[in-house]
């Protein structure tokens, strides 16, 4: 272990350049596409291209603390990198936009927008907060699971107590769709579903599978109401210690990993659904998707009122082909 004393300095005279450790924090379980992509793409790519100058250590499952904690850690420079959600939106409101309900048509549309100039516009200010964005990837298209009855149309939402994250876009969006929303931390969700404190939750199907929530759920609806984007961030303090060549390799590694992750996700989504079906869940499609898209319009209006510049950005996103 590390407890042993280091060998005396003059034991090997030719000083090897020190290997720098890059800790990457995230909140996904080890089997999630995010962690597979980090392990199979980002880590080997970076370590090989930099000829072993860096060693990547992946800390999955909130091992380095919750999302808020590791974002703070990256911004302080105590954690080098992270794959995070959009918690910083409370400081940088434009980051709310990618989570607007029914904004993106599909994964490719989202990736094209977010890894392009609009993505850069949305992430403005992150570097000043110490967290430099490197690449966007996806957490998945969110589906709605519950233990009460199938949800196929807007008529079926009224009597469902749905857990949502403490995030006004989610709360407003799901309420606009007619659900009774309850916010509670993710850690309490499993027992809350099991004990029927809440009837359902909304998350991408792979998350429902990997977290075991399906044990307490009977139905899952492919509502795909929000595309949960993830953003790979690197500590600005750490970034400034890199040479321009190294910076370039980091950026490339990030884009490679992101592309790989989205590909994995496209495969993982149907696989997860098949497994959920095996576990006995009934899978439903929406019969009235246009109605759902219409129902969430008040969420857009609310934010346009507060930030009129959002309207133009949203329009440009919708126009991106």
């Amino acid at each position: 272990g590390c407890g042993k004393p280091a060998p005396a300095p003059d034991a090997n005279k030719e000083k090897k350049p020190e290997v720098r450790v890059v800790k990457i924090a995230n909140y996904f379980p080890p089997t999630h596409p995010q962690n597979i992509a980090l392990k199979e793409k980002f880590k080997p790519y970076l370590e090989e291209k930099t000829k072993g100058a860096f060693k990547v250590e992946i800390y999955d499952n909130n091992q380095l603390g919750s999302e808020k904690e590791f974002i703070n850690g990256v911004s302080m420079g105590t954690i080098e990198m992270a794959v995070a959600g959009l918690l910083q939106a409370e400081m940088l409101p434009k980051l709310k936009i990618p989570e607007f309900p029914y904004l993106f048509r599909d994964y490719d549309h989202a990736m094209k927008v977010l890894n392009g100039p609009i993505g850069e516009e949305i992430t403005q200010g992150m570097i000043e907060k110490g967290t430099r964005p490197l690449a966007w990837s996806v957490n998945g298209l969110r589906a709605i699971s519950n233990s009460k009855h199938p949800i196929k149309s807007l008529k079926d939402t009224k009597d469902i107590k749905l857990r949502v994250p403490t995030n006004s876009i989610f709360i407003d969006g799901m309420q606009a769709l007619g659900f009774n929303t309850v916010s509670m931390p993710m850690t309490e969700l499993f027992s809350a579903l099991q004990q029927k404190v809440v009837d359902g939750q909304e998350n991408p199907a792979p998350t429902v599978l990997t977290s075991g929530w399906y044990e307490a759920q009977k139905y899952i609806t492919l509502s795909y109401h929000i595309l949960g984007p993830n953003i790979m961030i690197i500590s600005e303090k750490f970034w400034q210690t890199l040479t321009p060549e190294q910076q370039k390799i980091f950026k490339e590694a990030a884009l490679e990993y992101a592309k790989y992750e989205v590909d994995l996700m496209k495969k993982f989504d149907p696989e997860a659904l098949a497994k959920l079906k095996e576990k006995g869940l009934q899978i439903d499609e929406l019969t009235d998707r246009p109605e759902w898209e219409k129902a969430v319009q008040p969420v857009y209006e609310k934010w346009y009122k507060q930030y009129p510049e959002f309207k133009d950005i949203v329009q440009r996103i919708k126009d991106t082909k």
């Binding site: 703070n72 302080m76 910083q88 409370e90 400081m91 403490t166 006004s168 916010s183």
Partner: peptide, 15 residues
């Protein structure tokens, strides 16, 4: 230090 880092970060529900 932590105060100055987080004083610009409002909590989602209560701000």
């Amino acid at each position: 230090k932590f105060y100055f880092q987080t004083v610009v970060w409002p909590a989602p529900a209560t701000q």
